[in-house]
C-alpha cells in the first residue's frame, strides 16, 4: 500500500513515499519557512524518482503539529486537496509523537520538544511501551523554565529530543536530562508513514476535510490594516509577518 507522508510543522519540510515494505523515496529541506515553495515539487520529485504515478498513491499521512502555524497549514491543505482530488483516505498524526518514535529504543522517559517561537516551546512526555512508546501527557506550551521544572519534578531518567531541546541544552542538562543529538531534532515523514501504515491497513482513517492543525495557542488577534501588499510601483506598506 503506497502512502504519501507530509511533515511541515517545523523549519524542516519532509516528504516521503513508503509502503509496508519500507521507504520508496524521500526528500527533505531545512531552509526555514520554505514549505510552500518546496512541498509540491518535492512530492513530484519523489514520485518521479520512485517511478510511480500520482494515481498509485493509496493514502496520505500528514503531520498535524503542534508546530509552525503556516507550515502546518501548507502541509495540511496540500494533503487535504491531494486526497480530495484522488478520493484518498488520510491519517493525521502529531509532530511530537513522530519525533518520540525516533527515540523509541532509548528505554528512558522521552520528552519531545519543539521550538514554538515567541520564547516558548511545545512538548510532551512518552514512556516506553510494548511495540514503541506511549504518550503520557497532553501537548504543552510554555517557556523553557516551565519544562525544566517539570523534568526536575520527575523521578525518571529523561531523554529530551527536538530543536527545542537542542536550543535549551544547558538548561535541560542541568536538570539531569540527557539531550539528544541534532539527528533527532525534527519530526520526519518516514516515521509518519511507518506509524500511519497500520491505521491505513485496518482502515482507521479520516476524511480529508476533517483534518485540523493542532494550534494549542489562540490566534493572534491583532489587526493589521496595512499588510495587503503594494501595487505596481508602490512600496510594501509594512507587511506584517504571521505568527510563525
Amino acid at each position: 500500500m503506497l502512502i504519501l507522508g507530509i511533515e511541515t510543522s517545523t523549519p524542516q519540510t519532509s516528504v516521503c513515499l513508503g509502503t509496508e515494505h519500507g521507504l520508496l523515496a524521500s526528500a527533505a529541506l531545512g531552509r526555514g519557512n520554505a514549505h510552500g515553495e518546496f512541498l509540491t515539487p518535492a512530492i513530484q520529485f519523489c514520485l518521479q524518482q520512485a517511478r510511480v504515478d500520482v494515481t498509485a498513491i493509496a493514502g496520505v499521512a500528514v503531520s498535524l503539529g503542534p508546530g509552525l502555524f503556516t507550515g502546518m497549514r501548507v502541509g495540511i491543505i496540500t494533503a487535504q486537496t491531494l486526497a480530495h482530488a484522488r478520493r484518498l483516505p488520510v491519517v493525521g498524526m502529531a509532530s511530537l509523537d513522530l519525533m518520540a518514535f525516533g527515540a523509541r529504543h532509548a528505554r528512558k522517559l522521552v520528552c519531545s520538544v519543539l521550538d514554538a517561537r515567541r520564547g516558548e516551546l511545545f512538548w510532551a512526555f512518552y514512556r516506553p511501551a510494548p511495540g514503541g512508546l506511549q504518550r503520557v501527557t497532553e501537548f504543552r506550551v510554555g517557556p523553557a523554565a516551565k519544562l525544566a521544572g517539570e523534568i526536575e519534578a520527575l523521578a525518571d531518567d529523561v531523554l529530551a529530543i527536538g530543536d527545542g531541546a537542542s536550543a535549551n541544552r544547558s538548561l535541560l542538562e542541568s536538570t539531569g536530562a540527557e539531550v539528544a543529538s541534532n539527528a533527532l531534532a525534527y519530526p520526519g515523514a518516514p516515521a509518519l508513514v511507518e506509524l500511519a501504515l497500520p491505521r491505513f491497513l485496518r482502515e482507521d482513517t479520516q476524511r480529508a476535510e476533517d483534518l485540523r492543525p493542532t494550534y494549542i495557542r489562540q490566534a493572534d488577534a491583532r489587526i493589521s490594516w496595512r499588510n495587503r501588499g503594494a501595487l505596481l510601483g508602490g512600496k510594501p506598506t509594512g507587511v506584517t509577518r504571521e505568527v510563525s
Binding site: G36, L39, T40, I43, Q44, V54, F69, T70, R73, V74, I77, T78, A79, Q80, T81, L82, A85, R86, N227, R228, G229, A230, L231, V239, R241, E242
Partner: peptide, 22 residues
Amino acid sequence: GPGLIGALLVGVAGAKALALAR
C-alpha cells in the same frame, strides 16, 4: 498575490496539490 501572506499560502498550496493530483 498581492494579499495576506498566510491567507494566500492556503490557496496556493491547495491549487498546486490539485494540479499535481490531477
